[in-house]
Design a protein around this nucleic acid. Sequence first.
RNA 1: GGAGCCAUAGCUCAAUUGGUUAGAGCACUGCCCUGUCACGGCAGGGGUUGCGGGUUCGAGCCCCGUUGGCUCCGCCA
Length: 607
Amino acid sequence: MKKSFHQYRTHLCHELGLKDVGQKVSLCGWVQSKRDHGGLLFVDLRDREGITQVVFHPDKDPALFASAKQIKDEFVIKVGGVVVERPAGTKNAAIPTGEIELEAENLEILNPSLPLPFNLDEPIENEELRLSFRFLDLRRKKLLNSLKLRHQVTYVVRDYLTSKGFLEIETPILSKSTPEGARDFLVPSRLSPGKFYALPQAPQQYKQLLMVAGIDKYFQIARCFRDEDLRSDRQPEFTQIDIEASFVVVDDILQWVEEMIQQIFSKVLGIELPVPFARITYKQALDLYGSDKPDLRIAWQIQDVGEVFENTEFKIFREVLARGGVIKALNAKKASPMVGPAGIAELEELAKSMGAKGLAYIRIEDKEWKSPIVKFFSMEERKRLENVLGIEPADLIFFSAGPWDQACQVLGKVRLHLAEMTRSVPPNEWKFVWVTDFPLFEYSPLEQKWNSVHHPFTRPCQEDIGKLDSGKYDEIRALAYDIILNGVELGGGSIRIHEKELQEKIFSILGIDKDRQKLLFGHLLKAFQYGAPPHGGIALGLDRFVMLLSGAETIRDVIAFPKNRHGVDLLTQSPSEVDFQQLKELHIKLAFPSLDSRLRQEPEIEP
RNA sequence: GGAGCCAUAGCUCAAUUGGUUAGAGCACUGCCCUGUCACGGCAGGGGUUGCGGGUUCGAGCCCCGUUGGCUCCGCCA
């Protein structure tokens, strides 16, 4: 008999088989289902790993049989008994333990359960209910598998990075507020009245300081916090695989990440990914796919047709070109029969919502071009267009004319939407792509200032550094890279600035004056004066990655206890009001009545 | 801050498009059943159709408001 130190159980519910027949064992778990035949009773006992059928015979032990009748779904029980081979014809090939069953000799109901508010075996639409009973939702196989998958991913990450000499180091959660970027979550300090910590948006500055410290290679499965509005792929707290290394160039980082992802796919999913991943520049990404996170699963590419219309009589195109704009076209091969007038109207709306004046199109039916604009094209233009776009029957062509980035992005969105409408996204494909050579800055007309595209610590391309002085900020490229999987931004990183002077220059361009630089980033500037090595790194969104790997549609499904759209945890009802005394200790006075004072003011209602 | 979608039994859904007493499966309660495995059978309980107002002879269905949930835009260095 197997010896066990455990009082409750000798095995888990997935592991018993014919090899164990005759053994006395003990199992614990939840009642997945009870099948009471009156004179014979089966219980499917479930734990995290699997299911074992338990059988109760009335004639062997009437008292035991009677107590088994008390069992209901989701009761937690402990069953002891003998493993027996199931009678011929009653084996269940659907489960790994289907050749045996546990013949019960004793039963202990460890805890009963109320009837569940929802069924565990069908998908639940009511997300509010799911979140408020998250501990039950997590019993469902799909979510359990997501958590297992997530664990396996972080396990491989730790294993791989450790093998490459990276050290896992924790950085502070109580950290410093630097109002660049996303809104901070603030934590009031009791010991420093009137002062606040901030929860880190990312361990960015700490990991750079670790490089100055000579740590050389760092990583962390890091929790990050951003107080911005939520989305299906955005939670206020999320997890990054955060990596930083010294004495590296862009290719070092990219290769590590490729190899790490390759191992994750191999060890977790059993899929062998080809490396290196595709690489395109930011400019190519917009030109060809109309997005800085292109979905390469979709075959259609955007093309520039400015040359076709260089002498056009078509007023709209002519004026756009005269203003220095571009004319882009997307040939959605074979899409025409699948998209009706309603579909076209939908895409037009989409284009308009992005600031386009309209969305011109040509529908190719056999030899005929159906379009509101073709009548303005000359025969020459039609011929050239047919050549350039490779037009064939059943094609559907969209045009976007305007400023380069807008024209590209409009067709980029049309491309994605159209692919969905026509089901042109192939399933079970994993298309990774690196997007490189991002611009360092972008101008915000709203704020009337330059902002970092990546973050202020990003290093400019060496050959563009001169332009920091000439003021051509929009021409400066960054040593920054994003990794994209199936059109989802998995992460991004850069080679960093490690010189005080260069960093100060960047801050100044971003409109952060010397005083404020010292106040917000003094620690970093100080560190750069003490032998900061060249360094760079990357951060990958773990939640999004696991979401894609598990086929989930929202990162809520790969986070154990996520928050709803308003940042509320429906299970614990946080955030919540706090006692007056707690606020007092934190030197905080509310601008509206506190819970305490409202409770005091409300007249007691006598029954 | 803006736009959209959704809300019917504990859960998943239906209700012939404005018409009599709002149904089904699962779950729940009781009874029957010795080889089931989503066991089966019989019987039963369970609804202010999210809430408030309006239109109408009549509203689950139409209109307005509101609450909650979700999706998208803004926002997310």
